[in-house]
Write a protein that binds this DNA or RNA. Structure first.
Lengths: 328, 328
DNA sequence: TTGTATGCGTTATCAG
DNA sequence: CTGATAACGCATACAA
């Protein structure tokens, strides 16, 4: 079943049928109705491979990641899937190895020619990758990157400040931070937010209270151990993602420190993990799913390069890993 | 840069260059060398869209799932990615809604025409979906399904029996089971394995010790609550997947039952979650990643329908959620 | 507003 | 073993 047969059945030319799919608005209502009837009748679906060849572009949306934050990946994947639902685009996954991410991305784009690409942090922060997309003329959306052409993110800095301020309000003053990788802008923003809030309340934000991890569970454990040995011991620790916060939970358990009794722990992102830890993790919700939906919308709409529109709202999700500090 | 230019540079015809990529063995060593030189020189890569159109098949491997077991999904995705690395195939994701999975799969295959498809349980158990793949002439591998043409799985039944036998050996005799969905063959096999082992040791396997969940965390919590009220209380609970086992951990925490002191908990699959729960979960490792690699190998090799080859070995991973039972 | 001719880059047929 | 020519199914000038 090809466009040609449809054209014959409808008594029009191939091109008219082609137009029906691509520029329906250019057809007279009458012609459109004729074509539409035949298509509905036959259940015809144009061949995607042929379209891809002619358009030099595949009906794919790619999610490019580096496997470094599984929780965020999951949320973004869910959002993209949702937004892609019912569209003609399918979702392709492409992890990029730490070594030659650029080369791999280039060859991926060369081969697949997806309609668009979503870059997850921390890859989204790399200009070289964005440039490669631009060169290949492929729309790209950079998640977790506020400034710049194709960024899409929430305000990590003020979200973190809000979180820390809340901890202060409920009585905490010794608050440790498990930071993300130094190279990550997102992590930097979150750390700045912490510093903002600590400064605002005139609290100690000395280097001993800040330990950097690399967003993994294991680094969360190490960081947790370190922070638990600081004296006087922090009454609260906030981690830059849930995975590391869970690591802190484990470190506390190993050290025999009860959570939230003796220590409050807070995560960030509100990934699926947050509700599943023991105790369930209080975490700052980042609307990754909504962000991903918007990213897909941008890819599909063809809007070449929009600036960040409204900004996405974060939301503190309170679970059981935090308790008011006992004022001593 | 097209096949035509390469042909000119090498002083041969288009078709010869095409043959170099598809049936290199049909070329004379001399001709092959000429073509190879030019290709190496120019770094030419044939256009995938054009090939897709001519071959009626895209360079994609699809992972079809229903979002019901995120842990297994992750492992399989990792295995596929690994196996796909360096090949010309890319990984596409396609969730199928519970409602009209069949129709959605059909239209997906129609549009994408992937080289092959991997069906995750419980979708892999549905004959109608396998039939749709067969109709569309698309290779399909059904994960977690031992018998039949395209199945690829380990022996869930004996793995579970091994697990339960181990619990008995270290002193447990009241052992509860959190089963998977009744409709799932995999879950049935695991439940049978439990029954096998309990019968072998002449232990009570009455219905009060068996509660069915649906593989979700939440159902694990409910099942855990139920089992903790059985009298006499089980000293161990094994769940048919890690997600539910984590639910049991939460139920125990809420009931003030200490793990592993008063209750041992065991998971199944050994997903990423198992190492992250508190306490870390003893779990039966199912080599999903290796299974996924083999699935991709089948898709690429074109072997139409192999039977299960060697069988994949499971392996008990001992962590902290189990302790020997205090003999009373 | 609609149709004609041509191109997209590759593979397959069938002849030499 | 190799090469001319016709598909593959759709989209885009350009003309009508």
């Amino acid at each position: 079943m090809t466009i040609t047969e449809i054209a014959e059945l409808a008594g029009v030319s191939k091109k008219t049928v082609s137009r029906y799919f691509n520029h329906a608005e250019l057809l007279s209502a009458e012609t459109r109705a004729k074509v539409e009837a035949v298509i509905a009748d036959t259940g015809f679906v144009p061949n995607a491979q042929a379209r891809a060849l002619a358009l030099q572009r595949n009906f794919l949306a790619a999610l490019i990641h580096d496997n470094s934050d599984r929780g965020v990946f999951e949320l973004v994947e869910a959002g993209m899937t949702e937004a892609l639902e019912g569209s003609e685009l399918a979702l392709v996954l492409q992890p990029l190895p730490p070594g030659d991410a650029a080369a791999r991305l280039r060859s991926f784009l060369d081969r697949l020619r997806p309609a668009g690409v979503v870059l997850l942090p921390p890859l989204s922060e790399r200009e070289d990758l964005a440039d490669i997309c631009a060169q290949a003329q492929i729309r790209c959306v950079r998640l977790g990157r506020v400034r710049g052409e194709n960024g899409l993110a929430c305000d990590d800095r003020s979200a973190m400040a809000t979180l820390v301020t809340w901890l202060v309000r409920i009585g905490h003053s010794r608050i440790g931070l498990v930071g993300g990788p130094e190279s990550s802008l997102t992590a930097q923003q979150r750390e700045l937010g912490y510093l903002d809030a600590m400064a605002d309340h005139g609290l100690d934000r000395g280097p001993s209270l800040i330990v950097s991890g690399d967003n993994t569970f294991e680094s969360g454990i190490s960081a947790g151990r370190l922070l638990l040995e600081v004296s006087p011991r922090p009454t609260a620790i906030v981690a830059c993602n849930d995975e590391m916060a869970n690591g802190v939970l484990h470190a506390a358990a190993q050290a025999g420190v009860s959570v939230p009794g003796e220590l409050s722990v807070v995560g960030f992102d509100d990934t699926a993990l947050a509700a599943r830890t023991l105790p369930p993790l209080t975490s700052m919700h980042v609307p990754w799913t909504a962000i991903a939906r918007e990213a897909v919308a941008r890819i599909m709409s063809g809007t070449p390069q929009t600036q960040t529109a409204g900004g996405f709202e974060t939301d503190l999700i309170i679970r059981d890993s935090v308790a008011p500090a006992v004022t001593t």
